[in-house]
């Protein structure tokens, strides 16, 4: 019985840490989808770029002893402005041509063009990484990845909860970044303009909001968050050019699960996926871990088609 309790607590902890990171990736996607209504196929590849950038930055910070074990997390934060600028530039040069007010005249409100464009960006990023970085996986080798905080469970002498230090810190940073983003959207002028642009771009224009700029900020923020999430993941998942494809389905599942258009919902959608993915191993063979995620996904959509948070709670 004690062994079962230990296994449950350990699995739940693994689900919460994985879920926090999934949640952050989903928030990045929801920023772009919720505000701009753009289905961004390149989101997983922004994550991949974040991973490579973090490895590069951490290698340079690693030489400076003052940063020590914190180097990977500082690198993750430094990835954000780089990807924000890259995302904004990408929006200015390409994405803006198929979105916002420019999309009014396009067939299907520009959605087909957006799909093809973001798919093209994804392919360019993947193959560009293959040319520049090669196919060998790279990672940040940190002692934190193989160290745990051991918390006695007090049910017997042996039972211990192992909290992997790298994953736990990554999860806390993810929650922190997601929280800051929520504050930005709810309590700042930029957030207000983002919400207005999301709710009704035309009406927002009438009241003097620069919708294109709002979209540019949203796209930059979405890319930056994906980059930070990737940078936090690279401690446990090595970077390789096609790593983004492993996560893109989870991102979309999280966004739909949380409620399309809801950024808070996207975070909780990712969290649910992480927890279900891990807890399912207690009752089902390990091989069905991901199948269980999509079973829960289907069940939630069956009984609550608008997702966990829907549009009624929050829109952007």
């Amino acid at each position: 019985m004690n062994a079962m309790i230990e296994q449950f607590v350990q699995t739940l902890a693994a689900g919460l840490t994985a879920g926090s990171l999934y949640g952050l990736t989903c928030v990045g996607l929801a920023m772009i989808f919720g505000i701009m209504r753009v289905i961004n196929f390149a989101q997983g590849d922004f994550m991949m770029v974040g991973m490579y950038l973090a490895v590069w930055i951490a290698a340079r910070l690693g030489g400076v002893h003052v940063f020590g074990a914190a180097a990977p997390f500082i690198a993750a934060i430094l990835v954000a402005p780089v990807l924000f600028m890259a995302g904004s530039l990408l929006h200015r040069l390409l994405i803006s041509r198929t979105t916002g007010l420019r999309a009014v005249g396009l067939s299907g409100e520009g959605h087909q063009a957006q799909l093809i464009l973001t798919l093209g960006v994804a392919l360019i990023l993947q193959n560009g990484a293959l040319i520049l970085m090669g196919s060998s996986p790279v990672s940040i080798v940190s002692k934190l990845s193989s160290r745990a905080w051991e918390i006695p469970l007090l049910i017997d002498e042996d039972s211990t909860l192992f909290l992997n230090q790298a994953r736990t810190i990554s999860a806390l940073v993810s929650i922190g970044v997601a929280f800051l983003l929520f504050r930005l959207i709810r309590q700042t002028g930029i957030g207000k303009s983002l919400r207005a642009a999301a709710d009704n771009p035309e009406a927002a224009t009438y009241v003097g909001i620069d919708v294109t700029r709002a979209h540019r900020i949203a796209f930059g923020l979405g890319a930056a968050i994906a980059g930070v999430a990737g940078a936090l993941m690279v401690l446990s998942t090595p970077a390789q050019p096609f790593v983004g494809t492993d996560f893109i389905i989870i991102m979309y599942a999280g966004v739909v699960l949380g409620g399309i258009g809801s950024i808070t919902g996207a975070f909780w959608g990712g969290m649910v996926i992480g927890v279900v993915q891990q807890l399912s191993t207690l009752v089902l063979p390990l091989q069905l871990q991901n199948a269980m995620v999509f079973l829960v996904f289907v069940l939630i959509l069956l009984f609550r088609p608008q997702g966990l948070f829907g549009r009624t709670v929050e829109r952007a």
Binding site: E6, Q7, Q10, A14, G15, F162, Q278, L282
Partner: peptide, 20 residues
């Protein structure tokens, strides 16, 4: 005896069983 479908999202639950 544990078999998983790659990629593994977290090795914790699997290796905990090995430990037990």
């Amino acid at each position: 005896d544990e078999t998983f479908t790659p990629p593994l999202s977290d090795a914790g639950p699997v290796m905990q069983r090995v430990r037990a």
